[in-house]
Write a protein that binds this DNA or RNA. Structure first.
Lengths: 168, 168
DNA sequence: CGCACTGCTTGCACTTTGCAATTATATGTG
DNA sequence: CACATATAATTGCAAAGTGCAAGCAGTGCG
C-alpha cells in the first residue's frame, strides 16, 4: 500500500510550469474583455480577433486574417460572417483575383473596435504597471524568442519532441 | 469616402498586445501536448489539468482542484468523471465531511501523468533554452506579479476596469 | 473548352459549455 | 428532535462551438 507518494514523480508542478503560467495570465485577463465584447456587441472571440486584424489591415483576405490571428479558415469564414451580420465588416470579391475575399472594416466596426481596444489597452496598462521599465524590455525580447520557439514546437508535433528529449 | 484609415485608431495591435502574446505562446506549446494526451489516453484538457493536481495533492476535494487549476466546479466534476472512467482516479466521500469528495490518483493514473509530464517538461526545457539565466529569473518574478494582477483584473470585471481607466 | 487547382463557404454530426435543477450531507434553530 | 437553511458535488439539457466532407466560384494551363 505505498501507492501514495505525495509529490509528483516527474518534477512537473502545474503552478510552476511555464506554459501553464503564461496560459493562466492570458486566460485571466481575457475573461473580462471577452464578457465585455460578447455582452455589448454579441461578438465571439474569433470575431474580436478578426476585427482587430481588419482594423489595421484593410481589404485583407481570409487566409491573411487566419495567419495574423491564429485561426483556421473555417473559423475565419464564420467570424467574418458574424462581423458582416453585425455590420462591422463587409466582404467583397477581391479586385484582381475574385477567389480572394477583400474584407474591410466598416465605420461602426471601427467604433466597436475602438471601444474594445480601450478596454484591452487598460488591461495591458495594468499589467505593465506591475513591471519595471527594464523588465518590460526583457519580457518583450524574451516573448519574441518564445513565440519563435513555440511555433517550432507546434510544428514539430509530440512524436518529434519525445524523440528529441530521449536523444538530446 | 474616407472610411478606410489604414491604421487602428487606438494603439492596440494584436501582435504586440501583451495578453495576446502570452496566449499565443501558451496555445502553440499546448497543442502538441494536448494531441499527445488526447490521442494516447483519451484525456481532455480538464482531465489533464486535474490529473496534474491530484498527482501532487492526495485526497483533494473538487473545489481545491478547481482553485488549483482554474476550472469551474462543473468542469472539475466532469473531468474527475473522465479520470475515474479511465481508471486514473478514484473518488471516495470525504473522511470527516462526506459532502466533500476525496479524489486520489491511482497507480495507472500516475503512470500516465509521468508520461505526459515528461513531454511537458521537454517542451518547457525547449522554451527555457531560448532564455538566459537572468532572463529566466526576471520572467519568473515578473510572471508572479502578472498572475496577481491578472487575478485582480479578472475579479474586477469590465465595468470597474473601464471606470478606472476613465478616472485614473 | 476541359480539367485540375485554389480560396472560401456551407451543412451536418459531434463535442463542449453554461446553467438550472437535483442529490446528498451537514448545521443551526425553535 | 424535526425542520429550515446552507454547502459540495453531480446531472440533464439546451445552446454554442468545432471539425471535417463536400460544394461552389474563380483561375490558369494544356
Amino acid at each position: 500500500m505505498k501507492q501514495a507518494a505525495p509529490a509528483a514523480d516527474d518534477g512537473l508542478r502545474l503552478s510552476t510550469w511555464l506554459p501553464y503560467r503564461l496560459f493562466l495570465v492570458a486566460a485571466q485577463v481575457a475573461r473580462p474583455l471577452e464578457s465585455f465584447y460578447s455582452e455589448t456587441f454579441g461578438l465571439s472571440q474569433a470575431g474580436w480577433r478578426i476585427l482587430a486584424v481588419i482594423a489595421e489591415r484593410d481589404a485583407a483576405n481570409a487566409s491573411e486574417i487566419g495567419r495574423a490571428c491564429a485561426l483556421d479558415p473555417f473559423a475565419v469564414s464564420r467570424g467574418i460572417g458574424q462581423l458582416a451580420e453585425l455590420g462591422f465588416a463587409v466582404r467583397r470579391p477581391g479586385k484582381t483575383d475574385r477567389r480572394f475575399a477583400a474584407v474591410s472594416i466598416t465605420r461602426s466596426g471601427r467604433t466597436a473596435f475602438n471601444r474594445i481596444a480601450a478596454l484591452g489597452s487598460a488591461i495591458e496598462a495594468r499589467l505593465l504597471a506591475r513591471l519595471t521599465e527594464s523588465e518590460r524590455t526583457t519580457l518583450d525580447s524574451a516573448l519574441t524568442r518564445l513565440e519563435g520557439e513555440g511555433a517550432r514546437i507546434d510544428a514539430a508535433g509530440w512524436r518529434a519532441l519525445l524523440d528529441d528529449a530521449a536523444a538530446p
